[in-house]
């Protein structure tokens, strides 16, 4: 089965799968010794690594890039010039409160569908789409149900696995398990994690804390809403659009109060006592939220700025997390 890679949470896996292709939301890893992007100064490390990952990928049949950030939008130009892989740039509107913005997103899904058909996919019937959506929804629900029963690292890796491989391979059961307790409850908020960054969960746990809210783009925050069963049956594509475009909160949206509403609810219900703010240097979208979040949250916030040059978490970051938790004891 042909694989379509992407990294943005606003690309619905269900839509790709319904076309008979394999969606894979990738997490870029180490850049290797050479970079496909000429400059490094000013370039978001995540974007740089994504471009490298796409260019070096030999398994994928296509790549979907979105416009949620300017550097990713421009990275599309680099991908188009540096590799042969068929690429699609999907407009994801920044505004979200107007009917026109939702319609634009829906139109873009349809256009994505045409791209997928050109790659060998088959345009799905509503019924076929609904079936795939239901399967994904069930799998997603089972992933989310493991929260609290797995270590925070295992839980976030499970989400990443679900994003990468879709519904397959999710066999975790929680019947026999006791929920994890203990540790100072923390949230991680920010952009996406790189593959090597999962170590942060263990660093937190080894320092006496526990990530109870993974609000990184690659975590729970980047998962779409539960599908409404009636709308799924009646108008699956519109329901898909609502669950993704209408529900995933993010800093890039204008205005972005949806993100703060979501955080308010989740931080409170999980009794979070501190926030690790995860951002890449040169990521303006998240960087600009740091100060506001500090003022808004009424919780201690640890700013972790990631250069992406390291193979894994730096000693400096580890020590800062350790100190942060010591303060919170």
């Amino acid at each position: 089965m042909k694989t379509i890679i992407y990294t943005c949470p606003y690309v619905p896996a269900e839509w790709i799968a319904a076309h008979g292709l394999r969606p894979s939301r990738i997490m870029p890893g180490a850049a290797g010794s050479t970079s496909s992007v000429g400059r490094t100064e000013g370039v978001c490390p995540y974007v740089r690594r994504f471009v490298n990952e796409v260019i070096m990928n030999t398994q994928a049949s296509g790549v979907v890039v979105t416009t949620v950030c300017d550097q990713m939008r421009r990275a599309f130009d680099i991908i188009m010039r540096r590799c042969e892989l068929p690429a699609f740039l999907m407009n994801v509107p920044s505004t979200w409160q107007s009917v026109a913005a939702h319609k634009l997103y829906l139109d873009e899904l349809r256009r994505l569908g045409e791209f997928l058909v050109r790659l060998g996919g088959k345009s799905p019937s509503s019924r076929a789409l609904a079936k795939v959506m239901l399967e994904y929804d069930t799998a997603r629900t089972s992933v989310l149900a493991t929260r609290g029963y797995l270590t925070s690292s295992q839980y976030s890796e499970l989400i990443a696995e679900f994003n990468r491989d879709g519904k397959s391979g999710i066999t975790t059961t929680i019947n026999e398990k006791k929920p994890f307790t203990g540790g100072i409850p923390l949230a991680i908020i920010g952009g996406p994690l790189l593959r090597e960054d999962f170590g942060i969960f263990d660093v937190v746990e080894n320092s006496g804390g526990r990530i109870v809210l993974d609000a990184a783009e690659t975590g729970e925050r980047g998962m779409c809403a539960h599908f409404d069963r009636r709308r799924l049956r009646d108008e699956p594509l519109i329901e898909l659009s609502n669950a993704y475009f209408g529900s995933i909160p993010d800093a890039f949206r204008r205005p972005n109060n949806q993100l703060y509403n979501w955080l308010k609810r989740e931080l409170a219900c999980r009794e979070v006592r501190g926030i690790i703010f995860w951002r890449y240097i040169w990521c303006d979208i998240w960087h600009a939220e740091l100060h506001r979040l500090k003022q808004w949250a009424n919780l201690p916030v640890l700013d972790v700025d990631v250069s992406g040059d390291e193979q894994a978490l730096t000693v400096r970051t580890t020590q800062r997390i350790h100190a942060f938790l010591e303060v919170l004891q």
Partner: peptide, 20 residues
């Protein structure tokens, strides 16, 4: 009045900060 979408992130982020 501010245009957003296919614009630079700096300005979009700063305008959002202003909004906040």
């Amino acid at each position: 009045v501010c245009s957003v979408g296919a614009t630079c992130d700096d300005f979009s982020a700063i305008a959002q900060r202003l909004n906040g």
